[in-house]
Simulated scan of single mutants.
Amino acid sequence: MSKNSKLKIYITLFFVMITWGLNVIATKLLVTSFMPVTMTAFRIFTAAVGVFFILFYLGLLKKPTKNQFLYMILCSLFNVVGHHYFLSVGLKETSASNGGLILGMGPILTTIFAIFLLNYKVTVLRFVGIMFGFIGIFFIIFQSGNGLQAISLGDFHVFLSIFLQAISFIMIKKISGTLDPRLMTGYMLLFGSVILFAISLIVEPNGLQSMGNGSVGIWLLFFASAFLATSVGHMIYNYAIGKVGPSESAIFINLNPFFALVGAALFLGEVISLPQVLGFIFIIFGVVLGSGGFEELVRYRKGKQKYVA
């Protein structure tokens, strides 16, 4: 691949990370206007429609086998239902800045599960990175200085959402060799939205009624979140993985907490505290070291220098 092609992909990934970071802000606004689970079910279904439209345009639509079908439902329970349920409920109860920073733990949690479930090698740098990540979370959730009482239920729910998503990434990796991840994404979003809607009918009896309370601006935000952040964002990210590799693509995820912090300050007027800034710094270093991104970059540069020599 030429340098210009790689540069275009990197620039595109940069803008995807902006949408993903700001999507935390969008979700925070949406759950204050609609009941969270009902809204999330409709948003995920809208995103699924967007993904299938793109798949049809690209000629990638394919009927999965029975085993693939069952596995995708299982993945959807973790990646879509569990993740988005606890994320929407959590952001109702905590700040967008806290939520964005906690979500930044995703790559580290994925690495931890990969170590235990996929027998990934634990290096000194990865161990240090994992410790940095948890130190960052400590700064965020204990920022008020009130000890365990400082942990809000919202913080816990957001952490649980990224915890479940990290498990799903391991499951997806095991099946991605037999099924295109982009196609898998569409089916998972569709299955998940149906299950979330069924849950919303139980936990939010007035959820459908709340969907009629949104202003024009909120509905525009709803469709932007569904199509840009979820549909287009995930499709572009999966495409980038195929072109430049997972290690180089994963480095860009580190930008999400930064854009979530900036968005919370600009659009929600949230005051960013010093402990949050310190937590952000520790999480960034933790993700770069703990996810193996730094080691991959060093190996890549060494191999390139050897090739040039």
Rank of each mutant, 00 (worst) to 15 (best):
G21P: 01
F294N: 06
I170A: 09
M39N: 15
L153G: 14
N206W: 04
F127W: 08
S247D: 08
G279M: 09
M235Q: 10
K243W: 00
G290L: 11
L196N: 14
M17T: 05
G133Y: 03
K6C: 02
Q305C: 02
L289P: 03
L61N: 10
M17R: 11
G242R: 12
G263D: 04
T12H: 04
E204W: 07
F267P: 01
S249C: 12
F159Y: 08
Q68L: 11
E270T: 10
Y307C: 05
L70A: 14
L289Q: 02
I241R: 13
V122F: 08
I251Y: 03
I135H: 03
K8V: 07
F42N: 14
N98T: 09
P275G: 11
V308S: 14
I141F: 04
W20D: 02
L60Y: 10
G106L: 13
F142E: 02
V51S: 02
Q165F: 15
I25Q: 02
Y237S: 10
L221Q: 07
F132M: 14
R43G: 06
V288H: 10
I241A: 10
L58M: 13
F52C: 05
G217P: 13
I11G: 07
I172K: 07
E248D: 11
Y239F: 10
M1Q: 12
G21C: 10
G59I: 07
Q305L: 12
I199V: 14
L274S: 11
G263H: 07
F56P: 06
N4R: 15
T38P: 00
G90W: 02
S97Y: 01
